[in-house]
Protein backbone atom coordinates (compact mmCIF):
# COMPACT_ATOMS: atom_id res chain seq x y z
CA UNK A 1 0.00 0.00 0.00
CA UNK A 2 2.79 2.41 0.90
CA UNK A 3 4.53 1.37 -2.28
CA UNK A 4 1.38 2.11 -4.23
CA UNK A 5 1.13 5.59 -2.73
CA UNK A 6 4.79 6.29 -3.44
CA UNK A 7 4.28 5.48 -7.11
CA UNK A 8 1.00 7.40 -7.26
CA UNK A 9 2.67 10.45 -5.72
CA UNK A 10 5.24 10.56 -8.45
CA UNK A 11 2.57 11.77 -10.89
CA UNK A 12 2.09 15.39 -9.82
CA UNK A 13 -1.09 15.83 -11.85
CA UNK A 14 -2.65 12.86 -10.11
CA UNK A 15 -1.95 14.36 -6.69
CA UNK A 16 -3.57 17.63 -7.73
CA UNK A 17 -6.49 15.63 -9.15
CA UNK A 18 -6.94 13.76 -5.88
CA UNK A 19 -6.93 17.01 -3.91
CA UNK A 20 -9.55 18.53 -6.24
CA UNK A 21 -11.67 15.41 -6.04
CA UNK A 22 -11.58 15.46 -2.23
CA UNK A 23 -12.64 19.10 -2.40
CA UNK A 24 -15.66 18.22 -4.56
CA UNK A 25 -16.53 15.40 -2.14
CA UNK A 26 -16.28 17.83 0.76
CA UNK A 27 -18.57 20.28 -1.05
CA UNK A 28 -21.11 17.53 -1.71
CA UNK A 29 -20.98 16.35 1.88
CA UNK A 30 -21.25 19.85 3.32
CA UNK A 31 -24.01 21.04 0.97
CA UNK A 32 -26.84 20.73 3.54
CA UNK A 33 -24.73 22.57 6.12
CA UNK A 34 -23.46 25.31 3.81
CA UNK A 35 -26.79 25.83 2.08
CA UNK A 36 -29.54 24.60 4.34
CA UNK A 37 -32.95 24.27 2.81
CA UNK A 38 -33.89 23.36 -0.73
CA UNK A 39 -31.77 24.69 -3.61
CA UNK A 40 -35.08 25.24 -5.43
CA UNK A 41 -36.16 27.95 -2.99
CA UNK A 42 -35.90 31.62 -3.76
CA UNK A 43 -32.93 33.12 -1.96
CA UNK A 44 -32.82 36.67 -3.27
CA UNK A 45 -33.82 38.94 -6.14
CA UNK A 46 -33.66 37.33 -9.61
CA UNK A 47 -30.57 37.83 -11.80
CA UNK A 48 -28.27 39.09 -9.05
CA UNK A 49 -24.68 39.16 -10.36
CA UNK A 50 -22.03 37.25 -8.37
CA UNK A 51 -21.05 38.92 -5.14
CA UNK A 52 -24.11 41.09 -4.77
CA UNK A 53 -26.39 40.83 -1.73
CA UNK A 54 -24.26 38.06 -0.26
CA UNK A 55 -24.87 35.77 -3.22
CA UNK A 56 -21.41 34.39 -3.88
CA UNK A 57 -22.17 33.15 -7.42
CA UNK A 58 -25.28 35.18 -8.11
CA UNK A 59 -28.91 34.11 -8.52
CA UNK A 60 -30.88 32.71 -11.44
CA UNK A 61 -34.05 33.88 -13.17
CA UNK A 62 -36.19 32.83 -10.21
CA UNK A 63 -33.86 34.21 -7.55
CA UNK A 64 -32.40 30.83 -6.65
CA UNK A 65 -28.86 30.76 -5.31
CA UNK A 66 -26.51 29.40 -8.00
CA UNK A 67 -23.90 28.41 -5.41
CA UNK A 68 -26.47 26.35 -3.50
CA UNK A 69 -27.50 24.68 -6.74
CA UNK A 70 -23.89 23.77 -7.49
CA UNK A 71 -23.27 22.38 -4.00
CA UNK A 72 -26.42 20.26 -4.05
CA UNK A 73 -25.78 19.29 -7.66
CA UNK A 74 -22.40 17.87 -6.64
CA UNK A 75 -24.17 15.20 -4.61
CA UNK A 76 -26.28 14.12 -7.59
CA UNK A 77 -23.39 14.16 -10.06
CA UNK A 78 -21.10 12.08 -7.87
CA UNK A 79 -23.89 9.69 -6.97
CA UNK A 80 -25.03 9.18 -10.56
CA UNK A 81 -21.41 8.77 -11.69
CA UNK A 82 -20.65 6.17 -9.03
CA UNK A 83 -23.86 4.15 -9.20
CA UNK A 84 -24.07 3.98 -12.98
CA UNK A 85 -20.40 2.96 -13.11
CA UNK A 86 -21.05 0.14 -10.62
CA UNK A 87 -23.87 -1.19 -12.78
CA UNK A 88 -21.86 -0.82 -15.99
CA UNK A 89 -18.95 -2.65 -14.33
CA UNK A 90 -21.33 -5.42 -13.29
CA UNK A 91 -22.56 -5.96 -16.84
CA UNK A 92 -19.17 -5.41 -18.49
CA UNK A 93 -17.19 -7.64 -16.14
CA UNK A 94 -19.71 -10.49 -16.38
CA UNK A 95 -19.90 -10.41 -20.16
CA UNK A 96 -16.15 -9.90 -20.55
CA UNK A 97 -15.40 -12.76 -18.17
CA UNK A 98 -17.77 -15.10 -20.00
CA UNK A 99 -16.29 -14.21 -23.38
CA UNK A 100 -12.68 -14.34 -22.25
CA UNK A 101 -12.89 -17.48 -20.13
CA UNK A 102 -15.18 -19.62 -22.26
CA UNK A 103 -13.94 -18.45 -25.65
CA UNK A 104 -15.32 -20.00 -28.84
CA UNK A 105 -18.98 -19.49 -29.61
CA UNK A 106 -19.76 -17.62 -26.37
CA UNK A 107 -16.90 -15.25 -27.09
CA UNK A 108 -18.16 -14.60 -30.63
CA UNK A 109 -21.68 -13.96 -29.44
CA UNK A 110 -20.67 -11.58 -26.66
CA UNK A 111 -18.24 -9.68 -28.86
CA UNK A 112 -20.81 -9.18 -31.64
CA UNK A 113 -23.23 -7.89 -29.01
CA UNK A 114 -20.57 -5.55 -27.62
CA UNK A 115 -19.63 -4.31 -31.09
CA UNK A 116 -23.26 -3.55 -31.82
CA UNK A 117 -23.49 -1.41 -28.71
CA UNK A 118 -20.30 0.37 -29.66
CA UNK A 119 -21.53 1.10 -33.17
CA UNK A 120 -24.85 2.72 -32.36
CA UNK A 121 -24.64 6.36 -31.30
CA UNK A 122 -24.65 5.90 -27.55
CA UNK A 123 -25.76 9.39 -26.63
CA UNK A 124 -28.79 9.17 -28.90
CA UNK A 125 -29.66 5.81 -27.36
CA UNK A 126 -29.32 7.26 -23.85
CA UNK A 127 -31.66 10.13 -24.79
CA UNK A 128 -34.17 7.72 -26.24
CA UNK A 129 -34.07 5.45 -23.17
CA UNK A 130 -34.55 8.28 -20.69
CA UNK A 131 -37.28 9.91 -22.81
CA UNK A 132 -39.27 6.72 -23.26
CA UNK A 133 -38.98 5.55 -19.65
CA UNK A 134 -39.70 9.09 -18.37
CA UNK A 135 -36.88 11.07 -16.77
CA UNK A 136 -36.08 10.00 -13.23
CA UNK A 137 -32.90 9.33 -11.34
CA UNK A 138 -33.38 5.58 -11.97
CA UNK A 139 -33.87 5.88 -15.71
CA UNK A 140 -30.90 8.26 -16.01
CA UNK A 141 -28.59 5.88 -14.12
CA UNK A 142 -29.88 2.89 -16.10
CA UNK A 143 -29.42 4.64 -19.44
CA UNK A 144 -25.87 5.70 -18.59
CA UNK A 145 -25.01 2.19 -17.42
CA UNK A 146 -26.49 0.66 -20.59
CA UNK A 147 -24.36 2.81 -22.89
CA UNK A 148 -21.10 2.61 -20.91
CA UNK A 149 -20.44 -1.09 -20.30
CA UNK A 150 -18.88 -2.08 -23.69
CA UNK A 151 -15.32 -0.84 -22.98
CA UNK A 152 -15.33 -2.79 -19.71
CA UNK A 153 -16.37 -5.96 -21.47
CA UNK A 154 -13.54 -5.55 -24.00
CA UNK A 155 -10.88 -4.87 -21.39
CA UNK A 156 -11.99 -7.71 -19.12
CA UNK A 157 -12.19 -10.13 -22.04
CA UNK A 158 -8.65 -9.27 -23.12
CA UNK A 159 -7.35 -9.75 -19.57
CA UNK A 160 -9.16 -13.05 -19.18
CA UNK A 161 -7.89 -14.30 -22.54
CA UNK A 162 -4.31 -13.69 -21.52
CA UNK A 163 -4.73 -14.99 -17.97
CA UNK A 164 -6.72 -18.16 -18.50
CA UNK A 165 -3.80 -20.08 -19.98
CA UNK A 166 -1.42 -19.21 -17.14
CA UNK A 167 -0.10 -21.79 -14.68
CA UNK A 168 -2.04 -20.64 -11.67
CA UNK A 169 -5.30 -21.07 -13.54
CA UNK A 170 -4.28 -24.52 -14.76
CA UNK A 171 -3.34 -25.39 -11.19
CA UNK A 172 -6.75 -24.30 -9.96
CA UNK A 173 -8.40 -26.39 -12.69
CA UNK A 174 -6.35 -29.45 -11.72
CA UNK A 175 -7.38 -28.92 -8.11
CA UNK A 176 -10.96 -29.40 -9.31
CA UNK A 177 -12.18 -25.92 -8.47
CA UNK A 178 -15.46 -24.95 -10.08
CA UNK A 179 -15.38 -22.60 -13.07
CA UNK A 180 -17.15 -19.89 -11.15
CA UNK A 181 -14.69 -20.00 -8.29
CA UNK A 182 -11.75 -19.92 -10.71
CA UNK A 183 -13.19 -16.93 -12.54
CA UNK A 184 -14.11 -14.99 -9.43
CA UNK A 185 -11.41 -16.17 -7.04
CA UNK A 186 -8.35 -16.63 -9.25
CA UNK A 187 -8.58 -14.71 -12.51
CA UNK A 188 -10.61 -11.66 -11.56
CA UNK A 189 -8.28 -10.46 -8.76
CA UNK A 190 -5.42 -10.52 -11.25
CA UNK A 191 -7.40 -8.50 -13.78
CA UNK A 192 -8.39 -5.82 -11.30
CA UNK A 193 -5.89 -3.05 -12.06
CA UNK A 194 -7.10 -2.15 -15.57
CA UNK A 195 -10.69 -2.39 -14.31
CA UNK A 196 -9.96 0.08 -11.50
CA UNK A 197 -8.32 2.56 -13.88
CA UNK A 198 -11.19 2.23 -16.34
CA UNK A 199 -13.74 2.70 -13.55
CA UNK A 200 -12.31 6.08 -12.56
CA UNK A 201 -12.53 7.27 -16.16
CA UNK A 202 -16.05 5.87 -16.45
CA UNK A 203 -17.23 7.85 -13.46
CA UNK A 204 -15.88 10.94 -15.22
CA UNK A 205 -17.67 10.22 -18.47
CA UNK A 206 -20.85 9.24 -16.64
CA UNK A 207 -20.85 12.67 -14.97
CA UNK A 208 -20.45 14.31 -18.38
CA UNK A 209 -23.24 12.18 -19.82
CA UNK A 210 -25.56 12.96 -16.90
CA UNK A 211 -24.91 16.67 -17.28
CA UNK A 212 -25.66 16.46 -21.01
CA UNK A 213 -28.94 14.63 -20.36
CA UNK A 214 -30.12 17.08 -17.74
CA UNK A 215 -28.97 19.97 -19.95
CA UNK A 216 -31.47 18.70 -22.53
CA UNK A 217 -34.14 18.60 -19.84
CA UNK A 218 -33.90 14.86 -19.26
CA UNK A 219 -32.76 15.01 -15.65
CA UNK A 220 -34.87 13.96 -12.69
CA UNK A 221 -37.30 16.88 -12.36
CA UNK A 222 -37.03 16.80 -8.56
CA UNK A 223 -33.25 16.98 -8.35
CA UNK A 224 -30.98 19.98 -8.83
CA UNK A 225 -28.16 19.05 -11.22
CA UNK A 226 -25.31 20.89 -12.89
CA UNK A 227 -26.63 20.17 -16.34
CA UNK A 228 -30.02 21.56 -15.40
CA UNK A 229 -28.40 24.75 -14.10
CA UNK A 230 -26.56 25.25 -17.39
CA UNK A 231 -29.66 24.40 -19.38
CA UNK A 232 -31.72 27.00 -17.56
CA UNK A 233 -28.97 29.58 -18.07
CA UNK A 234 -28.73 28.91 -21.80
CA UNK A 235 -31.56 31.14 -22.96
CA UNK A 236 -30.57 34.04 -20.70
CA UNK A 237 -26.84 33.93 -21.33
CA UNK A 238 -26.79 37.53 -22.57
CA UNK A 239 -28.37 38.61 -19.30
CA UNK A 240 -26.76 36.33 -16.74
CA UNK A 241 -23.50 34.69 -17.79
CA UNK A 242 -22.85 33.43 -14.24
CA UNK A 243 -25.80 31.04 -14.46
CA UNK A 244 -24.04 28.88 -17.03
CA UNK A 245 -20.36 29.64 -16.35
CA UNK A 246 -20.07 28.40 -12.76
CA UNK A 247 -21.92 25.06 -13.01
CA UNK A 248 -19.81 24.32 -16.10
CA UNK A 249 -16.65 25.00 -14.13
CA UNK A 250 -17.90 22.60 -11.45
CA UNK A 251 -18.31 19.86 -14.05
CA UNK A 252 -14.92 20.67 -15.53
CA UNK A 253 -13.09 20.50 -12.18
CA UNK A 254 -14.80 17.26 -11.17
CA UNK A 255 -14.26 15.46 -14.46
CA UNK A 256 -10.69 16.72 -14.77
CA UNK A 257 -9.84 15.53 -11.26
CA UNK A 258 -11.27 12.09 -11.99
CA UNK A 259 -9.28 11.85 -15.22
CA UNK A 260 -6.09 12.88 -13.42
CA UNK A 261 -6.73 10.36 -10.66
CA UNK A 262 -7.30 7.73 -13.34
CA UNK A 263 -3.92 8.45 -14.89
CA UNK A 264 -2.27 8.34 -11.47
CA UNK A 265 -3.90 5.00 -10.71
CA UNK A 266 -2.77 3.69 -14.06
CA UNK A 267 0.82 4.74 -13.31
CA UNK A 268 0.72 3.32 -9.80
CA UNK A 269 -0.87 0.02 -10.79
CA UNK A 270 1.26 -0.58 -13.89
CA UNK A 271 4.69 0.68 -12.89
CA UNK A 272 6.31 -0.81 -15.96
CA UNK A 273 4.02 1.04 -18.33
CA UNK A 274 4.57 4.30 -16.49
CA UNK A 275 8.33 4.00 -16.85
CA UNK A 276 7.96 3.23 -20.56
CA UNK A 277 6.04 6.43 -21.02
CA UNK A 278 8.95 8.18 -19.34
CA UNK A 279 6.62 9.82 -16.89
CA UNK A 280 5.60 12.21 -19.65
CA UNK A 281 1.96 12.05 -18.66
Amino acid sequence: MRDFWRRYRRNKGAVVGLALLLLVFALAAAAPLLFPGSPWDMAGAPFLPPGEMGMLLGTDSLGRDVAAGIAHGARISLMVGAVSTIFALGVGVSLGAIAGYLGGFADDLVMRFTEFFQTIPSFVLAILLVAIFTPSITSVIAAIAIVSWPPVARVVRAEFLSLRGREFVQAAEVLGKSRLSIVVGDILPNALSPIIVLASLMVASAILLESALSFLGLGDPNLMTWGFLIGSGRSVIRLAWWMSVFPGLAIFVTVLSLNLVGEGLSDALNPRLARQRGGAA
Binding site: L208, F215, G227, I237, S244, G248, V255, N259
Partner: peptide, 9 residues
Protein backbone atom coordinates in the same frame (compact mmCIF):
# COMPACT_ATOMS: atom_id res chain seq x y z
CA UNK B 1 -13.08 17.21 -19.13
CA UNK B 2 -15.32 19.93 -20.55
CA UNK B 3 -18.95 19.29 -21.44
CA UNK B 4 -19.53 19.91 -25.14
CA UNK B 5 -22.61 22.07 -24.66
CA UNK B 6 -20.80 24.22 -22.13
CA UNK B 7 -17.93 24.88 -24.52
CA UNK B 8 -20.56 26.00 -27.01
CA UNK B 9 -22.15 28.37 -24.54
Amino acid sequence: ATPLFWVGL
